[in-house]
Design a binder for these strands. Structure first.
Length: 204
DNA sequence: TGCCAGGCCCTCTTTAGGGCCTT
C-alpha cells in the first residue's frame, strides 16, 4: 500500500462562534473521525469554551448553548488532545479553507502545530459531481444516499457525513473515472484541476 | 464611529463584481 493513500485520513469539522477567527471568532466544538484503509476506526468530539458568550444565532444554528460551553474545556486544552488524534495523518474537511483557518488559529493560541496537508470535499465534489444542484454537505449526502444521523451542524455528525462523502468520492473516482487507489496528493491535485479537464477524464 | 471573512470560481473578466460554501 502507498504510504500516503487517500483512504487513511482524519476528517474534521468545527462549530464556531462566527465566520472569521481574524474577527475574534473561536471554535466552540470540534468533531473528527479517523479513517484507516477506508474504514472509520476512531472518533473525536469535544466542546470548546471560547471564553465569551456566543450569540443566539449560533446557539440556534448549532444547538450548542452558553450553558453547555460554560463547563467545557478551553480551546487550547482541547486542541492539545486533538494534535494527538491527528498524529501524522492528512486532513479532510468540507470547505476546508474554513476549517483550516480555525484549526490554524486555535493551534496558534495553544502553541501547537501539525504536519498534515488539507484536502477539501467541496472542491472535489464541484469537479466530480458537476451536475449536483448545489454542493452543500447536506445536499451531497442526500444526492449520494449516504448515511446520516439526521443531526446537522454538530461537529461529529458533520465530520462523519463528510467522511462518508470522502469515501464515496474515492469509490466514484474508481468506478466513474478508472482511478484506482489514488494517493492523497493525486486527489488534492484533482480537486484543483479545471472542471472541464476533470470532466474529460470521465469514462464514457 | 463604523466598518467588518476569505478562498474558489464564473463571467456581461483580468483596470471587477458577485455567487457559493463554511459558522
Amino acid at each position: 500500500m502507498k504510504k500516503n493513500n487517500a483512504d487513511t485520513v482524519v476528517v474534521l469539522d468545527f462549530e464556531t462562534s462566527g465566520l472569521s477567527p481574524d474577527m475574534g471568532d473561536r471554535a466552540i466544538e470540534i468533531g473528527a473521525v479517523l479513517i484507516e484503509a477506508g474504514k472509520i476506526t476512531d472518533r473525536f468530539q469535544q466542546l470548546m469554551n471560547p471564553g465569551f458568550k456566543i450569540n443566539s444565532f449560533i446557539q440556534q444554528y448549532t444547538g450548542i448553548t452558553n450553558s453547555m460551553l460554560r463547563n467545557a474545556d478551553i480551546g487550547s486544552e482541547v486542541i492539545k488532545k486533538f494534535v494527538e488524534f491527528i498524529g501524522k495523518n492528512n486532513l479532510v474537511a468540507h470547505n476546508a479553507s474554513f476549517d483550516r483557518r480555525f484549526l490554524d488559529s486555535e493551534m496558534a493560541i495553544a502553541k501547537k502545530s501539525y504536519n498534515g496537508q488539507f484536502s477539501c470535499t467541496l472542491l472535489l465534489a464541484r469537479r466530480i459531481y458537476q451536475n449536483a444542484q448545489d454542493h452543500k454537505l447536506g445536499t451531497l449526502i442526500r444526492l449520494k444516499n449516504l448515511p446520516s444521523s439526521g443531526v446537522f451542524h454538530r461537529a461529529l455528525a458533520d465530520a462523519e457525513m463528510t467522511a462518508h462523502l470522502w469515501l464515496r468520492m474515492l469509490e466514484d473516482l474508481e468506478v466513474e473515472y478508472g482511478i484506482v487507489n489514488p494517493s492523497f496528493e493525486y486527489v488534492e491535485k484533482l480537486s484543483k484541476m479545471p472542471k472541464q479537464k476533470v470532466a474529460s477524464l470521465l469514462r464514457k
